[in-house]
Design a protein around this nucleic acid. Sequence first.
DNA 1: GGCTGGTTCAAACGATCGTTTGAGCATACG
DNA 2: CGTATGCTCAAACGATCGTTTGAACCAGCC
Lengths: 208, 208
Amino acid sequence: MTLLVNSSGSTKDRILGAAELLFAQRGFDGASLRQLTAAAGVNLAAVNYHFGSKEKLVEEVFRRRLDALNARRLEALAKIAGAPETTLEDVLAAYIRPALDLSHEDSGSLFMRVLARAFAEHDDTLRQFLSENYGHVMRQFTAEFARLLPQLSRQELYWRIDLVTGALTHAMSGFGMIQRKHDVSELAHREQTAQHLIRFSVAGLSHP
Amino acid sequence: MTLLVNSSGSTKDRILGAAELLFAQRGFDGASLRQLTAAAGVNLAAVNYHFGSKEKLVEEVFRRRLDALNARRLEALAKIAGAPETTLEDVLAAYIRPALDLSHEDSGSLFMRVLARAFAEHDDTLRQFLSENYGHVMRQFTAEFARLLPQLSRQELYWRIDLVTGALTHAMSGFGMIQRKHDVSELAHREQTAQHLIRFSVAGLSHP
DNA sequence: GGCTGGTTCAAACGATCGTTTGAGCATACG
DNA sequence: CGTATGCTCAAACGATCGTTTGAACCAGCC
């Protein structure tokens, strides 16, 4: 069905691109290395040669996007964290905007779908990988939320962050897929989406 | 690893129970019919004999729970829909409480996990099945939300409902799994959870 | 008893899975 | 030129997949 993804680029990059697409469409188990390498236009053995195993390939698909994404998130957070005039909107924007930006670079929107899948899977190996490598990001954001919402108990705060995370993950996994009206520019659409997500999250986090 | 689920009951029920558990743990592709029938303590061929195929079994796992769940939701909604004194809290309670109740019947909490998986998978066959059979439920709730939030545009309302749905699906897929403090009764825990979800959803739907 | 329809069973079907192998190819360096 | 080194390739490995088959079993009914 799907033929040739990314006919240019190195073998590793072609594999990563095809993996992102097929993992998003059919899941980690559903997408086979044969479908994947056929779509990438590379030999079947190339996956094990370059990545070692299918599981390592999955991790690399995450690493390639999350390293950059979370770096941008932390960079944006660092600019505002601790400042007295910082608002909840600012912190949420630091978390949300880098993800929406990614969704409009090359085929980054597919990645948010892959991320949503990983979120729904309660696979221990994958969860541990994500927690070990990117757990500190959520920890820093949580600390800033706690500072801006001192009236909330720890338990209450965790509940709300969990719910917001679920909402954002779900929403962003569909973003970039929906048909956009032709008279709305991509940038305006992204800005509108950001506003929806941010306002919703502010309301969910800070309600009395 | 997993041995014998539901050693009593009919063959069909044993299969459905084991399927719910393994689909929740390993996904629809990840759980094989051999693991499944071994856990159920039935013969491998029993799945195809009773259900026709693995895909039909998946549908039956959904049907068994969703028929009852959505019937209860609509029943609760019917009691309050259209009434002048009905609040957003009431409508959200009609949607949320039946799901939390299910999570504390037998192994119903596993089902919410399966549902969350189906939500993350963008598989067309499964989505169509759910939409055809249970789409009217969300449509009725949406109509009532629209009535109670007349100030919102259609587009704005859909955005908020989508975000709330994502939050609830995520939260309920983890509910029943978390370790509960021993000094908190099950009923109190469920009520506390319901309050969290309802208040969050009200804030997300009705913020200015 | 004999027969029937519903159910279970072990065994096998072809297909597909992730992974490994060893030969072949290209480029770079002595 | 010779020979390493990094990479690609077709082919095969054993394992496991969903599904099918045909015999065996077992109630209930004539």
